[in-house]
Amino acid sequence: MVKCTIEKLLKDGLNMIEKRDYNNPFLDVQLILSHLINKDRIYLHMNKDEEVKSDVSKKYYDMVERRNIGYPLQYMINSQEFMGLDFFVQEGVLIPRSDTEILVEKIINLVNNTELRNKTINILDIGTGSGAIALSLGYFLKNSLVTAIDISDIAIETAKINADKLGLSNVLIKKSDVFGDVKNAKSNEKYDIVVSNPPYIEKSVIENLQTEVSKYEPKLALDGGVDGLDYYRRIVEVYGFIHSDKSILSVEIGYNQKKEVLKIFEDAGIFSFIESDKDLSGNDRVVTGYLGM
């Protein structure tokens, strides 16, 4: 009987996974095996001849098969790195993307380079999902009090798990609906910074996205309505009655939505200055409006 060594499992896995536009079979099989034996990828390379237990081997082959049909690796290993932090993710929440780091870095730089750095700042993250944005801001901005809201029970559960993982006490996570509950609290809560990576995919486009997204990631976190702009309109409306005297609204956008989102911001008539930022690929990624600053 052939031994199931680390080397054999990695080779078998590579033969099983079909290369597609949105995957990296070599990295995928390493991460799956690393997860199962609780070792890092360097360990795999240094211990190729180590035999792996049969029950672990079976789980490995099962996971590789699932990955081959497009099931997201992050859901299988319950992990995704974001802003240098390790976030727990599970099916039912959007997997954090590196593009969203542009939004987080934008806010961190704004706070550290303005008068906001000298005060306690109230931040609202609308549609927090795994909590990646809210918790990263709470982690890197020690002078912040962050409220993270989502309508999804799974998102709230996931974000709370991540808050506990990171040991953050300055982030409040609660279930709330941007199309309802937030508006009802307009007289009680004011925020210096409002951020969001809202659903912004056009409804008709979702089914044409890569399998990892269209089949397995939550439609609730993707569907931005017929034109993809429903949440931007609502977020700008909500911001109009929850902002502090000097405040910022910053949102992630789709690569082709800059013109439309800028117009939504401009039509609100409340911002003294509006700007956009590109991601590392050169695509428009963030729109930010400033009020009283």
Rank of each mutant, 00 (worst) to 15 (best):
Y191K: 02
Y191F: 14
D192Y: 04
D192G: 11
D192R: 11
I193W: 06
I193D: 07
I193G: 09
V194Y: 04
V194N: 04
S196E: 10
N197E: 09
N197K: 10
N197L: 07
E202Q: 15
E202W: 05
S204H: 13
S204L: 15
V205M: 03
I206K: 08
E207N: 14
N208Q: 06
N208E: 14
L209R: 05
L209T: 12
Q210N: 13
Q210H: 13
Q210E: 15
Q210V: 14
T211D: 13
V213D: 03
S214W: 00
S214M: 08
K215R: 13
Y216V: 08
Y216R: 03
Y216Q: 08
E217F: 03
E217R: 06
K219S: 12
K219F: 10
K219W: 04
L220G: 08
L222A: 03
L222I: 12
D223V: 06
G224P: 04
G224L: 01
G224H: 01
D227S: 02
D227M: 02
Y232N: 14
Y232T: 13
Y232E: 10
R233F: 11
I235M: 04
V236C: 09
V238N: 02
V238W: 07
Y239D: 08
G240W: 02
F241I: 10
F241V: 07
I242E: 01
I242Q: 00
H243F: 03
H243G: 14
S244I: 05
D245H: 09
D245Y: 05
K246P: 08
K246N: 10
S247M: 07
I248R: 02
I248N: 01
S250C: 00
V251D: 05
I253Q: 01
Y255P: 03
Q257F: 00
K258E: 14
K259F: 10
K259Q: 12
L262D: 10
K263I: 15
I264N: 04
F265A: 08
F265D: 09
F265C: 08
D267Q: 11
D267F: 13
D267A: 12
